[in-house]
């Protein structure tokens, strides 16, 4: 399973690579990283249909995670990939917008990695 993680904090890459160390080693999961909404879109353009799951932060400078979600769900993929939103602002408003735009799940920071692993396994 290929997962694209979108977050403006670059250390997220190291963190995910270590948290999913075993899964990556056993080739159950493969990760790609983008550090802005714009980067994520260009990655998706170049690697069409590769990523089956996208994990995106909402609060990023420039294109926000919600805008990215809108682009992905409306324009890019048929069938669209699963998109999970992650945010530090776990408020009702963000949650509603994410759901309206078609997010498949909504997580609040700090991310509970064991919970995330369980969710990813059910999708895979």
């Amino acid at each position: 399973m290929k997962i694209l993680v979108v977050d403006d904090e670059t250390d997220v890459q190291t963190l995910f690579e270590q948290r999913f160390r075993r899964e990556i080693r056993d080739r159950q999961m493969e990760f790609a990283f983008a550090f802005s909404g714009e980067q994520a879109l260009s990655y998706l353009n170049e690697h069409a249909h590769e990523a089956v799951l996208i994990l995106s932060d909402i609060n990023m400078p420039g294109m926000s995670g919600l805008e990215l979600l809108g682009h992905i769900k409306q324009k890019y993929h048929k069938p669209p990939p699963v998109v999970m939103m992650i945010t530090a602002y776990g408020d009702e408003e963000n949650y509603q917008s994410a759901m309206r735009l078609g997010a498949d799940d909504f997580l609040t920071k700090p991310v509970e990695f064991n919970l995330l692993k369980e969710k990813l396994k059910t999708i895979a």
């Binding site: 904090e9 963190l15 530090a88 700090p110 990695f113």
Partner: peptide, 11 residues
């Protein structure tokens, strides 16, 4: 402050 703290906890 929340962001760096999350990293400290996670790492």
């Amino acid at each position: 402050i929340q962001n760096p703290l999350n990293f400290v906890n996670n790492f």
